[in-house]
Amino acid sequence: MGYIGQGQDMIRAELAQRVFAIDALADAGPAHRIAAELEAVRALAQAHGLSPAVTVIHALDSALSRGEHGAIVHGWLAILADAVGSGACDAQSDALFAAACQVRLGG
């Protein structure tokens, strides 16, 4: 079990680094580049069962497609960083992060 936990820790650390790098792009990077980077994060998160992160990425993709950028995207990325850092992989966590996205969307 320790090996699996350590592997998940390494995946979460890699995802966190990628989210940090995307955050650095959020002000100057074109939306299509941010979306491509998010797709790589989504694929890795999904492959490792980090479904709350996938949930947030879907909401973030929608925000980008609506034309959101800059500071607004930083807020979405903060939710994504929380989802990655939580290490949660269950339906309740999915629902909590989906609710956070709904609040962000409305707010």
Results as ranks from 00 to 15, higher is better:
Ala88Glu: 09
Ile72Gln: 15
Gln46Phe: 08
Ser93Arg: 03
Ala83Gly: 06
Gln102Cys: 00
Ala35Trp: 04
Ala40Gln: 15
Ala47Thr: 07
Ala81Thr: 01
Val56Cys: 03
Leu105His: 08
Gly5Trp: 06
Ile72His: 11
Ser93Leu: 05
Arg33Ile: 15
Arg18Glu: 14
Arg12Glu: 09
Ala40Lys: 14
Trp76Tyr: 14
Val103Gln: 11
Ala99Met: 02
Ile4Cys: 04
Leu50Glu: 00
Ile11Glu: 05
Val41Asn: 03
Ile4Met: 14
Asp90Cys: 06
Val56Gly: 01
Ile11Arg: 04
Ser65Trp: 03
Ala26Pro: 08
Ala47Leu: 09
Cys89Ala: 15
Gly106Lys: 00
Gly49Leu: 04
Cys89Met: 09
Pro52Ser: 05
Ala36Glu: 15
Ile4Asn: 11
His58Tyr: 09
Ala53Asp: 05
Val84Asn: 01
Arg12Met: 13
Gln46Pro: 06
Gly7His: 12
Ile34Leu: 12
Ala78Gln: 11
Ala83Arg: 01
Ser62Cys: 05
Ile72Tyr: 07
Gly5Arg: 13
Ser93Trp: 01
Gln92Val: 09
Ile34Met: 12
His48Met: 04
His48Leu: 00
Ala47Phe: 01
Ala98Asp: 09
Arg42Ala: 07
Leu38Tyr: 06
Ala81Trp: 00
Ala40Tyr: 08
Asp90Asn: 13
Ala16Pro: 07
Leu44Asn: 07
Val103Thr: 06
Gly7Glu: 13
Ser93Asp: 06
Val54Ile: 09
Ser65Pro: 04
Ala78Glu: 13
Gly107Trp: 07
Ile11Gln: 02
Val19Tyr: 04
Leu96Arg: 10
His74Ala: 10
Leu25Trp: 09
Arg12Leu: 08
Ala24Tyr: 01
Ala59Thr: 04
Leu60Asn: 02
Leu44Thr: 10
Met1Thr: 11
Val54Trp: 03
Arg42Val: 00
Val73Pro: 02
Asp90Gln: 07
Leu64Asp: 04
Ala45Asn: 03
Leu96Asn: 09
Leu60Glu: 05
Ala28Glu: 14
Arg18Trp: 06
Gly7Asp: 12
Gln6Leu: 11
Gln17Asp: 15
Val19Ala: 08
Ala24Pro: 04
Asp23Gly: 10
Ala16Gln: 11
His48Pro: 02
Leu38Gly: 06
Ala95Pro: 01
Leu77Thr: 08
Leu105Pro: 03
Gly7Trp: 03
Pro30Asn: 14
Gln8Tyr: 08
His74Lys: 14
Glu68Met: 09
Arg66Gln: 11
Gln102Gly: 12
Ser86Asn: 05
Ala47Pro: 04
Cys101Lys: 00
Ile57Leu: 08
Ala35Gly: 08
Arg42Trp: 05
Gly107Val: 04
Ser51Lys: 00
Val19Arg: 05
Val56Thr: 02
Leu44Ala: 12
Asp27Pro: 07
Asp61Trp: 03
Gly106Asp: 13
